[in-house]
Amino acid sequence: MTETDEYGFATRAIHAGQDPDPRTGSVIVPIHATSTYAQDGVGGLRGGYEYSRTGNPTRSALEECLAALEGARHGRAFASGMAATDTALRTILRPGDHVVIPNDAYGGTFRLMDKVLARWGVEYTPVPLADVDAVRAAVRPTTRLLWVETPTNPLLHVADIALLAEVAHGADARLLVDNTFASPYLQSPLRQGADVVLHSTTKYIGGHSDVVGGALVTSDDELDAGFGFLQNAAGGVPGPFDAWLTLRGIKTLEVRMEKHSDNTERVTEALLRHPKVTHVYYPGLPEHPGHEIATKQMRRYGGMVSFTVEGGEEAALRVCSRTRLFTLAESLGGVESLIEHPGRMTHLSTAGSPLQVPADLVRISVGIESADDLIADLLAALS
């Protein structure tokens, strides 16, 4: 399947890059568990493969599928979302460059910016990306990148991708969108003007909490060449079994995202009614400040919710410790529901910085279990 634009999302997810194996007829892409490839004479590569850090057929299938899901020409798969993040930043930025980031960015992204790239001479400014005037004011002559999460992690703020693309391109900068929370099914940033889309494929794309991975997707040939060079030179690539597991997860992405969204809407309604819940962060709520933009650029509102509780940090920690179906764990996007305390867990690296998250904040990743059971579990933990 090479022409994908004419097909629907679920068809692309199941078939793009995954034609039956020409030698055996296997309908599932084989796991090419090899480190190297026989050559027909020096430089005589069979199918273009020479060494599995540089390229592997299972990984190639995943990369083609990822590109098709985002409507792009190129996809690159990595060993983790942070490996993809590092590759994007080091490809686009040079010492002395400046990047605008969300003021509630993922803790791992902030840590890489603040503790690694800052030592390399890269400067960054945290800005509420929903405030386009603030973004414009933060742009400098040295700004080369606007780094966007929408919805953000963990406060679920929403940014207008098309408008930020105009700001970035007007400043001769690139726009990268971390699309992890939405997934390619719910949101298509490239179609709204983004230059690059990043995913932690560990999350919704893999969908089963059994594989770690990342991806960069673009239709910019020059950027993709840079990503490919660093992918090979630095070697942060997934193994063939990881690529195969991710491909397997992709096949059910559409049906899973619909169920995640269904469950999350019901869980959110229950949280709103609970007297000990002081605020609910979810872009599907009409009162959410980004609701209108989310409605415009997302198919649905996703499976992530954050909320604050009466009683401060200790109360939030108690809620996290009392659930039975919501497993206390980092990560998100799997079929099972997870709960965490961002301030002590995923966003600990932001403590004492402008990106520090509220101490009474709880973040949940709503899985695809029975919604009634999930609601009962949360209500019991809050009681």
Rank of each mutant, 00 (worst) to 15 (best):
H32E: 08
V42G: 03
Q192S: 03
A376R: 15
V357D: 06
P275V: 06
S365M: 04
G312P: 06
A118N: 01
R119W: 12
V277P: 00
G334C: 13
R76K: 14
N103H: 14
I161A: 04
S188T: 14
V335S: 12
A79H: 09
V305D: 08
D97C: 03
V212Y: 08
R59G: 10
P141S: 14
K251F: 01
V122G: 00
H169N: 11
E64I: 15
R136G: 09
P151H: 08
R111C: 02
R300E: 11
G343V: 10
V100C: 01
N232W: 14
T142E: 10
A16G: 04
V100T: 04
T327F: 11
I293V: 15
L374V: 11
A234Y: 12
S183Q: 07
E310F: 05
H74M: 13
K115V: 05
V122H: 00
A316H: 14
G48V: 00
I92H: 06
L164I: 07
T24N: 11
Y37Q: 09
V255H: 02
W244D: 11
D178W: 06
L328S: 12
Q297C: 02
L245C: 14
V122D: 00
E265D: 12
H98P: 00
T2F: 02
E265H: 10
D5Q: 13
Q18D: 00
D377P: 01
A359H: 09
L176E: 09
S219D: 05
A173W: 08
G108L: 08
L382P: 05
Y37C: 01
I293A: 05
E166P: 06
